[in-house]
Design a protein around this nucleic acid. Structure first.
Lengths: 295, 295
DNA sequence: GAGCACTACTAAATCGCTTTAGTTGAGCGG
DNA sequence: CCGCTCAACTAAAGCGATTTAGTAGTGCTC
């Protein structure tokens, strides 16, 4: 089978109009007067032939494709990144765009190659954002929102009566920048509560604090297992709260208390920002504490 | 800033040749005699102007782009999928192609839209593959390889002296097909060992078996926590082995024994299959048991 | 019955690249 | 010095869409 492409020209020929008219009909171009009968004919032909516009041709003509590229680097797709992606995808799809994600090396040359061959309308660079967090990027307020979620985390500990709080940092060097940001946020929140600002926590420094806020669930879980090895148990010996509910926390015993972030709203906002639409229509959902057994 | 695109024409003009020649040089077209001096001039100009070929234009002309699309549906990117993607990406990059991943709804219409706007050279549909596993798809032998990895898992239990083995299934309905395949494979392996074929395991059916092979680490961890709630401990009361080392298993106590699958080889093979290259050059790595504390 | 507005269309340019089918001129054997 | 080959290039077509700048034709007014 030659498996040949159905083009606009084919649709035009089949419905007895010019490609111009067919294009007008299929794209619902305003300011054109085309009688319903003709429109119907064109649409029918397109459906019957199974016409789908050729993305590359359209992209070439329009100057850029209807793709949006999310650079995720090595980040695992789970927890809030999953919902971020889902929100992004849903909103983009609703506007005729398509989300594609690049997982791979984080060097700039490699990203450039991806951008050059996919020719996307926009690029949301999460990997870069995590490496050097800055506000005002195309992330729908995701990085900015982190402050509120960190507050959710620390507030919970404070409400439980803890006054000396530590912050457990990740080991991965690529996460140091964003972890530093989170630590600063935790400090600001603690200070606002009149508490001593948290220090990076190590099990050896136990005794200095009664509770630990972790960078994420993975770090919290690692802490929990180190505690178990040392014969310590949460929350009696040390309260522990995770961050970014990955779905693994409730498999542990004691089950991990964590902060659930509904990032779908941020994803939608990022999509709207990218498309130049007003962002205020979609308020991001507040984060919530999933109270389990470790606090 | 007008941020205007640098085209081949610009490069040609800057180096005093026609676009044709510039194209020949930059694409290393064979059968053309172009003196080194000219080649040098063109390449220099391209570098200086920061020329990158326009992916859409090239795709339009060549009939398809240099993209390969991996449809991952809702699958979490962790464990072997992570290494599968890394291998795929590395091999494709080496041949001038780019891997992009679609995470999103699994309905066919949605995938079709992505394919139509990205116009990829090939599509590797992992979501479909998991829903209806079949050999001979563009997965580099990934689904076929599962049999060997399942054998690794069951062999370990048999070598430990277990003769009555259960198989823990996932709850997610989307995983039933692939889980059924895994169960069948486990049965074949057990039978080959002269053991009774495993049945789907539930904690209520404890006593019937002394060991459980889990569909994946997540299922294994869920089992471990259910056991802990019931006052049971692995491996004493029941031995448990996971599958597809997610990196969470060693945070549990007792730490989860699991099967580590180096899927990078499968990724590379999938890439080569897609590009029409011989697949035999890259043998997939055998899976290994990560022996921890639950067996 | 000229002028105008409006409907219902269409021809052709254009996006940036690759590639086929050349052209021009030098070198050389006879 | 004719004819040939070969090096060193280039003109132009064409991929499939969108969009600008039209063109016929009809109906209506003044």
């Amino acid at each position: 089978m030659p498996r040949t492409r159905v083009t606009l020209k084919d649709v035009a020929a089949a419905s007895g109009v010019s490609p111009t008219t067919a294009s007008f009909v299929l794209n619902r171009v305003t300011g054109q007067t085309i009688p319903p009968a003709t429109q119907e004919r064109v649409r029918r032909a397109a459906a019957e032939l199974g016409y789908v516009p050729h993305g590359s041709a359209r992209a070439l003509r329009e100057g850029s494709s209807r793709l949006v590229l999310l650079n995720a680097g090595q980040l695992p797709v789970a927890g809030s990144l999953r919902s971020f992606i889902d929100g992004l995808d849903a909103e983009l799809t609703g506007h005729g765009f398509t989300l594609l994600v690049r997982h791979g090396p984080t060097d700039p040359a490699s990203l450039r190659q991806a951008v050059q061959t996919a020719d996307p309308r926009a690029v949301i660079d999460l990997a870069e954002l995590y490496a050097t967090p800055e506000p005002d990027r195309l992330d729908g307020g995701w990085i900015d929102g982190l402050a509120a979620h960190t507050a959710t985390q620390v507030d919970h500990l404070a409400a439980r009566g803890h006054t000396r709080i530590g912050f457990a940092m990740p080991a991965d060097p690529r996460l140091q920048r964003i972890a530093g940001l989170r630590l600063d946020q935790a400090r600001a929140v603690a200070t606002a509560h009149g508490l001593r600002p948290p220090e990076p926590f190590g099990l050896d420094r136990r005794g200095a604090v009664t509770a630990v806020a972790a960078f994420d669930d993975r770090v919290a879980l690692a802490l929990l297992s180190a505690m178990a090895d040392a014969g310590l148990r949460a929350p009696g010996d040390l309260a522990v709260i995770g961050f970014d509910d990955t779905g693994y926390g409730d498999l542990w015993r004691p089950a991990l208390t964590t902060v659930h972030i509904d990032a779908a709203g941020y994803g939608r906002r990022a999509a709207r920002a990218v498309l130049g639409l007003p962002i205020s229509d979609v308020p991001p959902a507040p984060s919530t504490v999933v109270v389990r057994a470790t606090t």
